[in-house]
Amino acid sequence: MAAPVISVDGVGIQFQRDRQRKRTLKDMLGRKELRQAPDEFWAFRDVSFDVHAGESIGVVGRNGQGKSTLLKMVAEVLIPDEGSVTVRQGVAPLIEITGGFVDDLSVHDNVYLAAGLHGKSKDEIDDEFAEIIEFAEIKDFVHTPYKHLSSGMKVRVAFSVVSRLDEPILLVDEVLAVGDRGFRRKCYARIEEMLAEGRTMFFVSHSDGDLKRFCNRGLYLDKGRMQYDGPIDEAFERYTTDYA
């Protein structure tokens, strides 16, 4: 078997937040200073799995269980505190709709900026620009500052740019939930085309239907651990059994 395109080995990532204990009446009368203690917590630990080319993986779990964090580590936006993440192919991330876009630049300039940051040459973007704008359905807003677009329009621009990239690994995190129904249908058709081309995909969504439609494998994260790695239907069954 060919080497995996993604290897996650014993990964853990820790965050820290400051928790200020409540001021009591005694504290107030005694004018005692409040102390802030760091509150460190692990989003997850000891997570390991391999991904081979062409797999389509849905990440399942409640909010706050590290699904988006895991995608950001694959995208090399976040670095794990323990373990390692090895990605052997290029990644096209659709993780945050504002990622790679500048509010004060026009849609036109943002398309060139975002696509260029992902390795597209100016000539390549010139050739694809009209198709990107047509797919995004924003031809009347090409010279509008990005910050003036609605959240749905920003999603259309971002997806249109990212879906034109040639990278073999696609990361999708909930952003399609913001788009309108008609545009989601276009996005889903495009995702199916990309999967038919043999692309590898990580997909985070709270839509059971979408995950089962696009994914054949599920990773179930809960309580800071990988609870299950296997067929997507079984991943959902275990998740719903735990939280029925």
Score class of each variant (00 low, 15 high):
149 L>I: 08
142 V>N: 03
157 V>W: 01
127 D>V: 10
176 L>C: 06
115 A>L: 11
171 L>W: 05
166 D>L: 07
155 V>Q: 06
124 E>T: 11
194 M>L: 15
155 V>F: 04
130 A>S: 12
147 K>R: 15
170 L>D: 03
181 R>H: 14
125 I>D: 00
162 V>P: 02
182 G>P: 03
121 S>N: 05
184 R>P: 00
139 K>G: 08
148 H>N: 13
117 L>R: 03
176 L>Y: 03
187 C>D: 09
155 V>L: 10
129 F>L: 06
188 Y>P: 00
198 G>D: 07
117 L>Y: 11
210 D>H: 05
216 N>M: 02
151 S>F: 01
180 D>W: 07
168 P>Q: 09
148 H>T: 12
177 A>V: 08
201 M>S: 04
170 L>W: 08
141 F>W: 05
121 S>R: 10
207 S>K: 06
122 K>M: 07
191 I>N: 00
169 I>H: 01
123 D>H: 12
111 V>R: 01
127 D>Y: 02
153 M>G: 07
128 E>L: 11
214 F>N: 08
141 F>I: 01
181 R>N: 09
128 E>R: 13
198 G>Y: 06
117 L>W: 03
207 S>D: 13
163 S>V: 08
185 R>Q: 14
216 N>G: 15
195 L>D: 03
118 H>L: 12
206 H>K: 08
216 N>F: 05
138 I>V: 15
207 S>Y: 04
133 I>M: 13
170 L>C: 04
155 V>G: 05
113 L>T: 11
122 K>W: 02
112 Y>R: 14
189 A>Y: 00
207 S>Q: 10
189 A>H: 10
115 A>K: 05
154 K>V: 04
156 R>C: 02
144 T>G: 04
186 K>H: 10
196 A>V: 03
175 V>Y: 02
164 R>K: 14
204 V>F: 07
177 A>H: 10
172 V>L: 15
112 Y>D: 04
125 I>R: 06
197 E>R: 13
117 L>Q: 09
173 D>Y: 09
116 G>E: 08
150 S>R: 09
116 G>V: 05
136 A>E: 03
152 G>H: 05
170 L>T: 02
152 G>L: 04
170 L>F: 13
153 M>P: 07
156 R>G: 08
111 V>H: 01
139 K>S: 15
166 D>A: 14
171 L>G: 06
142 V>A: 09
177 A>I: 10
152 G>I: 10
203 F>G: 10
138 I>N: 03
138 I>E: 01
166 D>S: 15
171 L>H: 11
192 E>H: 13
185 R>E: 13
118 H>C: 02
163 S>M: 15
165 L>F: 14
156 R>E: 01
189 A>I: 00
143 H>N: 15
152 G>F: 06
191 I>D: 03
111 V>G: 01
159 F>C: 08
125 I>K: 04
195 L>A: 09
149 L>V: 12
122 K>F: 06
213 R>K: 14
123 D>R: 15
164 R>Q: 13
155 V>M: 12
210 D>F: 00
209 G>W: 04
125 I>F: 02
157 V>L: 11
180 D>H: 04
